[in-house]
Simulated scan of single mutants.
Amino acid sequence: MPFGEPEIRVDLACAPGPDGHWRGWFDIRVDGDALRRVGLHPEQPTSKVDGPSPPAWWHAAADRNAR
């Protein structure tokens, strides 16, 4: 993964929804300097990447970790 342990923070919050079922959501925060390494930056005005895409192995690792 392109981000190290101190560069990314993931929090999970849970609460009951309007129907009484519990819901969960994630809050993901990445350090601005870490975003620059993958072609993004915090002040970027659009969603277009202004640098190279992460390598193919990174996408494959993300797919494996999502399962």
Rank of each mutant, 00 (worst) to 15 (best):
D27N: 09
S53A: 14
G17K: 07
G24H: 13
P18L: 12
K48E: 15
Q44G: 08
V10I: 15
A66Y: 08
C14M: 09
D33P: 00
R37S: 04
S53G: 11
V30T: 03
W22E: 11
G20D: 10
V38K: 01
A34C: 08
Q44T: 05
R29F: 03
A60G: 05
P6F: 02
I28F: 02
P52G: 11
G4N: 08
V38F: 02
D50I: 05
G51M: 03
N65K: 05
A61S: 09
H21S: 14
F26A: 12
A62M: 11
H59D: 14
G24F: 10
G20S: 10
V38C: 05
I28E: 05
Q44F: 05
R23A: 10
A13Q: 13
I8H: 00
W22C: 02
S47K: 13
R36D: 03
R36N: 03
V30E: 00
P18G: 10
A34T: 04
P16M: 08
E5L: 08
A66M: 09
D63Q: 14
G17I: 04
G51S: 06
A62K: 06
D31I: 00
F3L: 03
A56K: 11
A34G: 08
G4I: 00
H59A: 13
S47Q: 14
P2I: 01
A56G: 10
V10N: 09
I8V: 07
A60F: 07
C14Y: 05
D31W: 02
R9K: 14
W22I: 02
I8G: 00
